[in-house]
Design a protein around this nucleic acid. Structure first.
Lengths: 237, 237
DNA sequence: TATAGCAAACTAACATGTTAGTATACTAAG
DNA sequence: CTTAGTATACTAACATGTTAGTTTGCTATA
């Protein structure tokens, strides 16, 4: 009857497994639920239900909603309700643009300023990635991929850039969850990572930038058909 | 006796002059106070005093603190206190890096995708800037400068990028408040804006990018001596 | 049947009460 | 005079009560 069914908030996990303030733990729990589509786009987040399920009061849940709203994962409708945002290709493209802007700036800087130690880490990490691909451990490779990109940003020496990028690219990451990992893509990804590291080794900022640019473009290309494949997840379905 | 004197929260203005939710208005009021150094770096924000001064309860003030914390304007020390963050050259450099990454990506895109209408706006705005410089209306020019940069980002077609950039560059903007506007700098700025628009007119992304890059670098150069000039505003003074 | 008005139920936003952790000032011991 | 211990005052974080605005579904009317 109702396409925008409210959620039962089952299986949210236990917030006691996490650290930090109660608000942070609630936020983390809800974020995970949204990214994994336990809370699908359009779902109404019922505060009372979530409070009960997690065993907390409304204060930390309210603060969690506020943070998720800033990340673009929920829409707060004043005096009315809070819903999981639908995916939108516009938002995804914007998130991709923002991520690309920051990652390109980062890799450009790292390519010119890199230390030998940093280069050694990158090369060692490439070998790790090779092993994971050989073992066909694709969820392991997914994690290693994330680590590769975030460490590259850490190497800029700017501490906040990693968390900022992940927050800005949240829409992108949510959509990425819908892509099934394929063996072929893992091999390609590894190859592209190698080209990037090669450019960093040669301290060639322009080459590093364009290699990273091509690498990141691939994601948006793979995401494009998603809107037709699962229209119910997108806005105005 | 106490260098980190608490503030009397005088002259915070009236929140009724603003729109939006109470939290937003409180946040805006406090942000303005921090940026204008009414609340100097290191000052302790006393929630009770602020509540009384603004005539609101602790809820909206708490939420405002949380937002300002994300912008890096205040440090929340759990179970203890909330203080205005000191300036730090590291933070300022990071903010400059982030702003530059986003603005360069934006101007590059705009230079290749621009419409005739957008170009016309930019050219018209340059004439406005000329008039302001001729009239020596430097505070007017300051505003026009902001408008020039933000509209350039709006022209990317991505709606969130302007507010994101301003939030990420908050540390930079705070430091910029300390620079006194000089006639010479306004003339230079206008000249640099003209070079950027010229590149956009010619649909030359690389030229636009490097023109913007040089333009933005100037700010950091002018900011560099600040740490020696007013050490009390910086961390570990 | 369609529609306008109304009431009940729900929600975000705000106010206020409570708890637990932190810093500071004071006191007592060395 | 210095230092260790303690008590007090303060705060963020959390819980709960209240308010005002929105949506939904019902009913009465055309």
């Amino acid at each position: 009857m109702n396409a925008e069914a409210t959620i039962d908030a089952q299986a949210l996990g236990d917030i006691r497994d996490l650290s930090g303030s109660l608000s942070e733990r609630v936020c983390e729990t809800l974020r995970k639920a949204i990214l994994s589509l336990i809370f699908p786009p359009g779902a109404i987040l019922r505060k009372g239900v979530i409070c009960e399920q997690l065993g907390v009061s409304r204060s930390p849940v309210s603060e969690a909603f506020a943070r998720l709203s800033m990340e673009g994962l929920v829409d707060i409708i004043p005096q009315s309700s809070t819903r999981v945002t639908h995916l939108s290709m516009t938002d995804i493209r914007e998130a991709a643009f923002l991520r690309q802007a920051l990652e390109l700036a980062a890799v450009t800087k790292v390519a010119s300023d890199r230390t030998e130690k940093q280069l050694a880490w990158l090369i060692r990490h490439l070998r790790l990635q090779e092993l994971l691909v050989e073992d066909k451990d694709y969820s392991g490779y997914f994690q290693a991929d994330e680590e590769f990109h975030s460490t590259l940003m850490v190497f800029t020496g700017f501490p906040r850039i990693v968390s900022i990028t992940s927050r800005l690219a949240m829409q992108l990451n949510r959509a990425r969850m819908l892509l099934l990992p394929t063996p072929g893509r893992a091999v390609e990804t590894l190859q592209e990572h190698k080209v990037i590291v090669d450019a960093i080794r040669g301290q060639n900022p322009l080459a590093a930038r364009s290699a990273m640019s091509e690498h990141l473009d691939k994601l948006l290309i793979r995401l494009a058909p998603l809107e037709d494949k699962c229209p119910e997840l997108f806005y105005s379905g």
